[in-house]
């Protein structure tokens, strides 16, 4: 089912950024908070998790994972940032823990200095979605819709990030081939490795280009990109 919500929030429960990747027919789920669910949910969810995080600290330490009947939340963060990711109930948690960490790393690399003295303006973080896209956070395996125009019913848009050999899709692919077909398994393994390396390379290139542009124009605001 994949990632359903991603919320970056401060420890007081105010969301820096929130995005929903489930959409009713026709809505563009690559645009922030456009559909009915996210319109009402981010503040509720982030406020609630803020309280929960505080309670958790008092009674047993960091909050890591919450499972409801229909979906589950993963949480992680630093002093100034808590990242929440909602995924499907049958999704492999370990597979998504890496992505959660990646989302935190991308956020802190690009907005880390802004969140220390944040004035409450969430517009500053709109660029985050583009940064995630450019890092291939949501990739085309096994089925990728940049938006939900193709959806014919109220179904989930399936966003997947290729995480190389540890990806669940890779495991599925490997299952198709008997263990004795060593050559075919090796080819798949190599393909996945290259895909993963290419993903890392694209992200590094994007990051480098972005910082170059920023050096040329000191006054350049990150929110000016694409929005």
């Amino acid at each position: 089912m994949g990632i359903r919500n991603l919320i970056a929030m401060n420890p007081n429960g105010l969301p820096y950024f929130s995005a929903n990747y489930i959409c009713p027919n026709g809505n563009n789920c690559d645009v922030l908070s456009k559909d009915e669910m996210v319109d009402k949910d981010p503040l509720l969810i982030s406020g609630f998790f803020s309280v929960l995080t505080e309670m958790a600290k008092k009674s047993g330490g960091e909050l890591q994972h919450v499972t409801f009947e229909k979906f589950q939340y993963l949480a992680n963060g630093t002093n100034n940032l808590i990242m929440l990711m909602a995924i499907g109930i049958n999704d492999n948690i370990d597979d998504y823990k890496n992505r959660l960490q990646l989302s935190i790393d991308i956020f802190l690399e690009n907005f880390g200095s802004m969140i220390e003295n944040w004035d409450g303006n969430s517009f500053l973080f709109n660029m985050y979605q583009t940064l995630l896209d450019d890092a291939d956070f949501f990739d085309s395996e096994p089925q990728y819709r940049k938006n939900c125009i193709d959806c014919t019913t109220n179904q989930d848009c399936t966003f997947r990030m290729v995480t190389g050999v540890q990806g669940i899709d890779f495991k599925e692919k490997m299952k198709k081939f008997p263990k004795d077909m060593i050559l075919k398994r090796f080819i798949i393994l190599m393909k996945e490795m290259f895909k993963y390396m290419a993903q890392i390379k694209r992200y590094k290139r994007f990051k480098r280009d972005f910082h170059k542009q920023k050096e040329k124009n000191i006054n350049l605001k990150i929110v000016d990109f694409g929005f």
Binding site: L52, A56, E62, V66, T67, E69, K70, F71
Partner: peptide, 22 residues
Amino acid sequence: ALFSIGTELQGGKLKTLDLKNF
């Protein structure tokens, strides 16, 4: 609180909550 709010989050009832120590 979590059990009740699960409905608000459209997620159904709370099943598990993992903290660092338990």
